[in-house]
């Protein structure tokens, strides 16, 4: 007997590709092809005049990015340093707030409304406003929001003077007080993370707590033995989200520099080389973080 048409398996594959077709078209023409162009730019000297022409120069752009260019490495180090410093603080902060918001108390919706607000206000213009408070004026009111941080708001300046007088070294004092100065940055970066943690906390089966109560566990024990391990998978999600969010932001120093190189200096070769180095380093960092955390993550299934 002859089989009619395609097998079910093949038919389903065909349907899958049909559903994917718009996106696949995008992968080819909007993503893969430009990525290939970017790679060829990175190894070439790009000249733009009524069309662009490429002249193969080997690794010269990479050499320039890493050894000649004075800005890239500096911006890159700042971005990575900020990330390494901010992500753990973001995690602790958002976990703390999630734990605080988990209970159903009067006014919890108001607080949820406020804590999610930074996600809505994540506009470059709004941040520029914060910078303008400080940079254009030295008056006491206006310098309150000095820099992206908020040194004036919490007066950590006085604190650090005090600590120096106590005999601590400047470096130590900086380590202690810089989270205070960065508090605004941290708080605004944590909008999504708080609610991801909240999802993790809410998804813990209540039976676990009931069993623990019967066995005589107190709140502290329940937190460390139940809540914390159950939320571990969300820690991985949040770390990855925070890292990607910091690196992809168009307002981070490297991305701004790339934009400047491409559209102000028209140095497409160098900007592509920088993008590839940047992308490679992000991938390595994410791979390491993923491997380290997922090994220690406990999955309740």
């Amino acid at each position: 007997m002859k089989r009619k048409g395609l097998s079910l398996q093949k038919k389903r594959s065909a349907w899958a590709y049909m559903f994917l077709s718009p996106w696949l078209f995008g992968v080819l023409f909007v993503f893969a092809f430009p990525m290939f162009l970017s790679l060829s730019f990175a190894f070439s000297n790009v000249t733009v005049d009524n069309g662009y022409s490429l002249q193969f120069v080997g690794l010269q752009n990479f050499h320039e990015a890493l050894f000649v260019d004075q800005n890239f490495l500096q911006h890159f180090a700042t971005t990575i340093g900020n990330m390494l410093y901010n992500v753990p603080i973001i995690l602790v902060y958002s976990f703390l707030v999630a734990v605080l918001l988990k209970e159903n108390f009067a006014g919890v919706t108001v607080f949820k409304f406020i804590f999610f607000l930074p996600v809505i206000l994540s506009s470059d213009l709004f941040f520029s406003l914060l910078n303008n408070f400080g940079s254009t004026s030295a008056s006491s009111l206006d310098s309150v929001m000095a820099g992206a941080g908020s040194s004036g708001m919490l007066q950590s300046l006085n604190l650090s003077e005090y600590l120096v007088e106590l005999g601590l070294s400047r470096e130590m004092v900086n380590i202690i007080t810089s989270p205070v100065d960065k508090v605004y940055e941290i708080v605004t970066c944590s909008g999504i993370q708080i609610f991801i943690f909240l999802a993790g906390i809410n998804s813990v089966p209540p039976t676990l707590y009931e069993a623990a109560t019967v066995e005589g566990a107190n709140g502290w024990e329940k937190f460390w033995k139940i809540t914390f391990p159950m939320v571990m998978p969300m820690i991985l999600v949040n770390v990855v989200y925070s890292i990607v969010d910091t690196f992809m932001s168009e307002s981070n120093l490297v991305m701004e520099y790339v934009y400047e190189l491409s559209f102000k200096n028209f140095n497409f070769g160098l900007s592509s080389a920088i993008c590839w180095i940047y992308f490679a380093v992000i991938s390595v960092i994410l791979a390491i973080v993923f491997a380290v955390i997922s090994k220690r993550t406990f999955y309740y299934t």
Binding site: V30, M35, G51, S262, F268, F279
Partner: peptide, 21 residues
């Protein structure tokens, strides 16, 4: 596509489309 900075493929795409052929 989530991990690649938008600039990395947007810039060459823009340049290519400005001289489309």
């Amino acid at each position: 596509t989530i991990l690649v900075p938008p600039q990395q493929f947007m810039t060459p795409l823009y340049l290519h489309l400005s001289q489309f052929d």
